[in-house]
Every structure is written in C-alpha cells, then in structure tokens.
Simulated scan of single mutants.
Amino acid sequence: MLTRMLDNLLSNAVKFTRSKVAIRLEASPAGAVLKVADDGIGIGPDHLSKIWDRFYQMEDSWNKGLNSGIGLGLSFIKDIADLHRAEVKIISEEGRGSLFRVSFPQIKDKTSV
C-alpha cells in the first residue's frame, strides 16, 4: 500500500509539474515524514478541502486532456495514510505548485518490523 501511495504522489507531481519534482524522506522524533513537491499549477483554496473526496477533479486543470484520470488517486493516498495512522497534508498555491507531506508515527515495538 505504501508503494501505491508513493506512486500516486509521484504520478500527480509529474503530471502537473512545470519543470521539477522533489522527494524527501526525513526522520523526526515523532516518526518519519515523506514530502513530495512540484512546481506546477498548484491547487486553489476553494479546491483544497475537496481533493481527498473520491472522484473529485479540478475542472480548470490546464492539461486535463493530457492527464486525465477518474479522481481516485488522492482519495487512495488519504485512505492509505489513515490505515498507517499517518497524517497527510498539502500546502499549495495556484501557479506555484504543491507540497504533499505525509507524517508517519514512530513504531513503538521495534520487534514487529
């Protein structure tokens, strides 16, 4: 499932970037943080609360004809994060790109890894 999450994050970043995608995995005292950022079209504030809904797509996407989908990728990301007790957030600005941040909690019992 984590592979699917990363694939969806990267696929979206590549679809909507202008020139670059950045991936970063960081350790933190609370666990691990995965960040995927692009410098693409961004997501406006009126869409941010809806992007996790199944089948939701931004109608004003500049390349919708080239990068069509059915609107399930971000809802899968949210579902997978929830199953792993992770928190997924987005910081986005229209015309400047998006940063998806997935914070995974620390595993308490190291023998279960």
Rank of each mutant, 00 (worst) to 15 (best):
M1V: 11
M1T: 12
L2W: 14
L2D: 12
T3C: 12
L6R: 13
N8M: 02
L10F: 07
S11H: 11
V14I: 07
V14F: 11
F16H: 10
F16K: 00
F16Q: 01
T17Y: 00
T17I: 01
R18I: 00
S19L: 00
S19V: 00
V21C: 04
I23S: 01
R24G: 02
A27I: 01
A27W: 05
P29L: 00
G31K: 03
V33P: 00
L34N: 09
K35V: 03
A37D: 04
G40D: 05
I43C: 06
G44L: 05
D46A: 13
H47V: 02
S49Y: 13
I51Y: 14
I51K: 09
R54P: 08
Y56M: 05
Y56P: 06
M58N: 12
E59L: 06
W62V: 10
N63D: 15
G65F: 10
S68E: 09
I70K: 12
G71L: 07
L72N: 06
F76Q: 09
F76V: 02
K78G: 00
A81M: 05
A81F: 01
L83I: 02
L83A: 10
R85N: 10
A86V: 02
A86I: 03
V88W: 08
I90G: 01
I90E: 04
G95T: 04
G95M: 05
G95D: 07
G97C: 04
G97N: 05
S98I: 10
S98C: 14
L99R: 08
R101T: 15
V102S: 07
P105K: 15
P105H: 15
P105E: 11
I107W: 13
I107K: 15
I107V: 15
I107Q: 15
I107M: 15
K108W: 08
K108P: 01
K110H: 14
K110V: 15
S112L: 15
